[in-house]
Design a protein around this nucleic acid. Structure first.
Length: 410
RNA sequence: GGAGGGGUGCCCGAGUGGCCAAAGGGAGCAGACUGUAAAUCUGCCGGCGAUUGCCUUCGGAGGUUCAAAUCCUCCCCCCUCCA
């Protein structure tokens, strides 16, 4: 494909590129470009936020370019002592190996991993001499480093920054040197690091990489960026029903972002709009109930990561349970043994705890008190209740937690 | 190295001898209303027991006291300024 066409394909709206001209120039060299993507070895659960850069990588791949995954095991091994929130444990080699493997497996959902180059950055850092490291450190100034947004913020808020953290961007930048990246790709929050990469590559006599940043996906809470630790994510390996439900719970206005960032051009659920439609008027323009558009979106996303059939089923199931108020067709089982029963009865709190629907008796009690607990659609109001249970009974806690009771004699 | 400020529950943050399981806010959970949306209202929000009870918690370890998050000693960590 001609370089100009490639550029057009690669850089429609979402991407921010430094710079288009340089990318075009690289494309014109007519060789497969080396596309760098860095991965954190501590978080093997990939979610829809990750899918944005990954899908872009796939595009590059389909155009015949070489994708290089860098597993940041070196820094993972050192362990970053900062984050005074939680001292994150230093990862062992086994952890890293295992994480990297799950990571690659999950990436395989989107990309052809056989055609990716997968490298560990320890392979060049563990042999680096102190002299070399110091030399690297001398290539950049503290002032410039502190320009970084979050550093500036932490400085202002009197939160400590370790020297290691200060060095982090350099470590990452050196990765680009090591793999001779032509393009580095990631979320917009990586812009600073990527730009440091350009400078460092110049210092090492290389042609600076082109930097391509993609928008971050807002999480299901509608507030913060999607991340595993915030619990507002939709994992790309989650079961269809789970995915569908989570997508239904996003605030309406996110539909447009999700549609734009997660779906392929040929399966959009939001039509191309005339230029003067305000954001809050889009649903009106579409003449559709926001809820239905959201369901279309959820179905489209599930179809991408599972199958159209699975997506349809997830939607039907969802409608049955939440619109029609019926029980889900499948639910986990809890096994109660005879030993737990007295005259075929069990304390409701015990039952909830056995089903793992409460963190503590106190919490379970409070759920009962708040009318959140029912058996076979009959609400339990008394926290001291000894309920009679039989196999096949359905325990429900809150809106969405169901379990089928199975009595087992022992 | 010197001077000062600080470490409180998931997070932020008040409390400076008893009325403190610890204000307030946020997050979370549940209920009402709904469309597993938003907004709003209500309740819960350390654990165990249960109508006023017990146990564990305020950086760590000791100590003073009838009684400590609050006072004393030592230690650890963070921040600011000076060098």
């Amino acid at each position: 494909m001609k370089p100009e066409q490639q550029l057009e394909l690669l850089t429609p709206h979402p991407a921010n590129v430094v710079t288009d001209e340089q990318l075009l120039e690289k494309l014109r060299q007519g060789r497969p470009l080396r596309i760098k993507y860095g991965a954190d070895p501590s978080a093997p659960d990939l979610h829809l936020g990750h899918s944005i850069p990954l899908r872009k990588l796939k595009q590059f791949q389909e155009l015949g370019h070489q994708v290089i995954f860098i597993i940041g095991d070196f820094t993972g091994r050192i362990g970053d002592p900062s984050g005074r929130t939680k001292t994150r444990p230093i990862l062992t080699d086994e952890d890293i190996q295992a994480n990297a493997q799950t990571y690659v497996e999950q990436v395989g959902q989107i990309l052809d991993t056989d055609r990716c180059e997968i490298v560990y950055n320890s392979s060049w850092f563990s042999d680096m001499t102190t002299t070399e490291l110091l030399n690297l450190a001398s290539q950049y100034s503290v002032a410039r480093m502190l320009e970084r947004d979050d550093f500036a913020l932490r400085l202002k808020n009197e939160v400590s920054i370790t020297v290691l953290e200060l060095l982090y961007p350099l470590i990452q930048a050196y990765d680009s040197v090591a793999v001779e990246a032509d393009v580095e790709l990631g979320g917009t929050d990586q812009l600073f690091n990527f730009l440091v990469g350009r400078d460092i590559m110049r210092s090492y006599g290389q042609e600076p990489q082109v930097v391509m940043t993609l928008p971050l996906l807002v999480g299901t809470d509608g507030k913060q960026k999607m991340s595993k630790s915030l619990g507002n994510y939709v994992g790309i390996t989650e079961p269809p029903g789970e995915m569908f439900g989570k997508l239904m719970s996003i605030p309406d206005r996110l539909v447009f972002d999700y549609d734009r960032l997660l779906l392929d051009p040929d399966n959009k659920v939001v039509p191309t709009l005339p230029p003067n439609v305000p954001v809050d008027g889009i649903f009106k323009y579409m003449a559709q109930n926001p809820r239905d558009v959201k369901a279309d979106l959820a179905e489209a996303v599930v179809a991408m990561y599972h199958s159209p059939e699975a997506a349809t089923r997830a939607r039907e199931e969802f409608d049955r349970v939440f619109a029609a108020g019926q029980q889900p067709s499948e639910m986990p089982e809890i096994v109660i043994t005879n030993a737990d029963l007295e005259d075929g009865r069990i304390w409701i709190i015990d039952l909830i705890m056995q089903a793992d629907f409460g963190n503590s008796n106190s919490q379970a009690r409070s759920l009962v008190r708040q009318n959140a607990v029912s058996i076979n659609d009959e609400v339990i109001t008394d926290e001291m209740a000894e309920v009679e249970v039989a196999s096949g009974d359905v325990l429900r806690v809150g809106r969405r937690r169901f379990a089928r009771i199975q009595i087992q004699s022992r």
